[in-house]
Simulated scan of single mutants.
Amino acid sequence: MPVDKILNAALSELRDAVNGLENAIDMRMERQREAADVENEVRRVHADRARLAQELDQAEFRANRLEEVNREVSRRLVTAMETIRAVLDR
């Protein structure tokens, strides 16, 4: 085989290898970008979850407080109605 053909074949193989390497690097970089995107999304989801958990705790606290106030108002209304009945019955 002439030297020119051997050299051309070797150069062609080298080009193919370099192209393959460049493709592998591009794919690796894309996977790393995707992984970083996923990681950022997971962080956002965790932050949202923490915020929502805090808001839920606050809403539950307010609901419990309203329930307590409602019981107190009901108790006072019953006392007022009993007082009014007692006055009317006299």
Rank of each mutant, 00 (worst) to 15 (best):
M29Q: 13
E41G: 01
V45C: 04
A24E: 12
S74W: 04
A50L: 11
D48E: 12
E68H: 13
R71P: 02
V69N: 11
A80K: 01
V69W: 08
V78N: 06
A35F: 15
V87G: 04
R75C: 00
A63E: 11
R62H: 14
E72D: 09
A80P: 00
I84D: 05
I25C: 04
E60F: 12
Q54I: 05
R43Y: 14
A24W: 03
A86P: 00
E68W: 07
A63K: 14
L77Q: 15
R51M: 05
N64G: 03
R33Y: 11
R65G: 05
R71D: 12
D48V: 04
A50N: 14
E30P: 05
E41C: 10
A63M: 15
V87Y: 04
N70V: 04
I84A: 10
R85K: 06
N40C: 06
V45R: 04
I25S: 02
A47T: 15
R71G: 07
N40L: 09
I25P: 07
E72Y: 06
R28Y: 14
N70C: 02
R28E: 08
Q58I: 05
A50E: 15
A35L: 05
M81Y: 10
Q32L: 09
D26R: 08
M29L: 14
V73F: 07
Q54W: 13
Q58P: 08
R75N: 03
L52K: 00
D37R: 11
E34C: 01
E68C: 01
N23H: 13
L77R: 05
E72R: 07
Q58K: 10
R44K: 13
N64T: 04
R51P: 07
N40F: 11
F61V: 11
E34A: 04
A24S: 04
V73W: 00
R65Y: 13
E41Q: 15
A86E: 05
R62M: 11
Q32C: 01
V73N: 02
R75M: 00
D26I: 07
R85A: 00
M81T: 12
N23R: 09
V38Y: 03
R43N: 11
M27F: 10
R75G: 03
M27N: 14
I84S: 13
E55G: 01
E82K: 00
Q58M: 14
R28A: 10
D48P: 06
Q32W: 14
A36Y: 14
I84H: 05
N70T: 13
R65I: 08
E34H: 01
N64I: 01
I25K: 11
A50R: 10
A59S: 09
E41K: 08
D37S: 02
R31P: 02
A80E: 08
R75P: 00
M29P: 08
V45E: 14
R44S: 12
T83P: 00
A36L: 14
L88I: 14
V87P: 01
D57W: 10
M27V: 07
L77E: 09
T83S: 06
R85F: 03
R43H: 04
N64V: 01
F61M: 11
R76E: 10
E68I: 12
R62P: 06
D48F: 08
E68N: 12
A53D: 05
M81H: 12
E60N: 09
